[in-house]
């Protein structure tokens, strides 16, 4: 083959994959993968990340659609919460039969 079509030269876009496990309540980021479109991303995620019975639901999001905070902003964003222990609801007693706190 002399010429490779343009589509083949480019990598498929990157997707971030979130899986909700049977015992969890929320979707958790498990990794990323390449896929040509959203449908294929879900199929690939099923094959790559739920082979061991890990999931009951999958979200796939284009990586370039995610807005991420920058490491440079760490201090202004997160440091102010360092000394505000009163924001934790630790002054209440939690009944034993309340899960997932």
């Amino acid at each position: 083959m002399s010429e490779v079509p343009e589509m083949v030269q480019d990598d498929w876009p990157l997707y971030e994959i979130f899986v909700r496990g049977k015992r969890g309540l929320n979707h958790v980021h498990v990794g990323s993968l390449h896929a040509a479109d959203d449908e294929m991303a879900l199929r690939h995620a099923r094959d790559v990340y739920t082979r061991r019975n890990e999931g009951v639901s999958i979200w796939a999001v284009r990586s370039d659609a995610i807005a991420a905070s920058s490491p440079d902003e760490k201090d202004p964003l997160f440091a102010p919460a360092n000394d505000k222990v009163y924001r934790h609801p630790t002054f209440y007693s939690i009944p034993d039969d309340v899960p997932h706190m």
Binding site: H34, H44, D47
Partner: peptide, 11 residues
């Protein structure tokens, strides 16, 4: 052809 298809076919 790529890693994802590799795993899919192996599954």
């Amino acid at each position: 052809p790529d890693l994802e298809e590799d795993i899919a076919l192996a599954n």
